[in-house]
C-alpha cells in the first residue's frame, strides 16, 4: 500500500471500512476489532434478526427487520467513523508483517464474494424472503401491488412449520418453473376436494356457506378464516383426491385466479414459503396504500 500521500491514512481506513465493515480496522492494525465488527455486521444484524422475525408474532416481522436494517447500517457507519478516528489518532501505527496487499485482497474476496453472498442466499432461501405481488388472484387478503415477507423456514426437514390447510403458500408454478405463485393451500395429500358451484368441501367439510349477493363468502378450516371472492363466476364442478406428495391450492379471488382448478395439484416439494406480512403496498396508479403497511396475512 504505497499511496500514503495521495490518500492520508485516515481516508484510506475510512474508505476500506466503507467497502467492508472492519476492513479499515484491519488496515489500522487492529485485527481483533476488525473481526468483531465484521461478525457483528454479517451475523448479528441480518441473519439473527430475520431468524427472530419469523419466530416473533406475525405483526412483529416488520419492526424486527427494520431494526435489523438499522443495526446493520449503524454498525457499518460506526466502522467507518471508528477507522477514520483511530487512524487519525495513531498516525504512526507500525505496520505488522501480515499487513500486505495480498492479505487485504484475500480478506476482501473471502468476505465480500464468499461469506456475504452465502449468508444472503441462506437468509433468503431459509429464513425470510420478500415477494412483490403483481396479480390480484389473492384479493382481498393480498392486493395487487403488495410487497410482503414470506417465512421461508417452511416445509423442509428441520423447518419450523409444515404445510397446513389455509396457509398462503409461495410455490414454483408447475407449468413454468421460472415463475413463482402465491395461493392458499386448500387440500393436503390424500384430501378429497370437491367444488360445486361456488362452494368448496374438503373431506366432506364445507369451507363456507354459499356466497352473499356481492359474491364474497367467509371460509374457514382448521381454525383459519378468510374471505373468498367468487365474483360473478359460474363456479365449477370438481371432485378429486389430492395425490400423495401434492397439495391443492386456490386463489382467494376465485373469479380471477389461475390455480389448481387449472393446473392441477402442486408438488409439495415446490412449496417454499408462506406469506406473513405486507411491508409495502402501492396501488396500480402509483399511490402508496399506507394502511396496508404492516398488515399481517391470515
Amino acid at each position: 500500500m504505497r499511496y500514503g500521500r495521495i490518500f492520508p491514512a485516515h481516508w484510506r481506513a475510512a474508505l476500506m471500512s466503507m467497502v467492508l465493515p472492519g476492513f479499515g480496522q484491519l488496515a489500522n492494525g487492529r485485527p481483533n476489532r476488525a473481526i468483531w465488527l465484521f461478525l457483528a455486521f454479517a451475523l448479528i444484524s441480518v441473519p439473527l434478526m430475520s431468524w427472530l422475525a419469523i419466530r416473533l408474532p406475525q405483526a412483529m416481522t416488520l419492526p424486527a427487520l427494520v431494526s435489523s436494517l438499522a443495526a446493520a447500517l449503524g454498525i457499518w457507519s460506526y466502522s467507518i467513523v471508528d477507522a477514520w478516528r483511530d487512524a487519525r489518532h495513531r498516525p504512526r501505527a507500525p505496520r505488522q508483517v501480515w499487513q500486505t496487499g495480498g492479505v487485504y485482497a484475500l480478506v476482501f474476496l473471502t468476505c465480500n464474494a464468499l461469506i456475504l453472498p452465502v449468508l444472503v442466499s441462506y437468509v433468503r432461501g431459509h429464513q425470510v424472503a420478500s415477494w412483490r405481488i403483481p396479480s390480484s388472484s389473492m384479493a382481498p387478503a393480498i392486493l395487487r401491488g403488495d410487497v410482503l415477507f414470506a417465512d421461508m423456514s417452511y416445509n423442509c426437514p428441520g423447518c419450523d412449520h409444515a404445510v397446513e390447510r389455509g396457509d398462503v403458500a409461495i410455490f414454483t408454478y408447475p407449468n413454468d418453473r421460472t415463475l413463482v405463485y402465491v395461493k392458499r393451500v386448500i387440500g393436503l395429500p390424500g384430501d378429497r376436494v370437491r367444488i360445486t358451484g361456488k362452494r368448496v368441501w374438503v373431506n366432506r367439510l364445507a369451507l363456507g356457506d354459499a356466497p352473499a349477493d356481492d359474491g364474497t363468502a367467509s371460509e374457514r378450516i382448521d381454525g383459519r378464516q378468510w374471505l373468498a371472492d367468487w365474483g360473478d363466476t359460474e363456479g365449477a364442478e370438481l371432485d378429486l383426491t389430492v395425490p400423495p406428495g401434492m397439495v391443492f391450492v386456490l386463489g382467494d379471488n376465485r373469479g380471477n385466479s389461475k390455480d389448481s382448478r387449472h393446473f392441477g395439484s402442486v408438488p409439495l416439494r415446490d412449496v417454499a414459503g408462506r406469506a406473513r406480512q405486507v411491508w409495502f403496498s402501492m396501488a396500480p396508479g402509483g399511490a402508496v396504500r399506507w394502511s396496508r403497511l404492516g398488515q399481517a396475512i391470515h
Binding site: S45, V120, I133, P134, S137
Partner: peptide, 15 residues
Amino acid sequence: LLTFALAAWTAGAAF
C-alpha cells in the same frame, strides 16, 4: 454491502 443489508427487502415476483 447494501445488497446484503437489504437482502430481506429485495423482492421477487409471486403471481
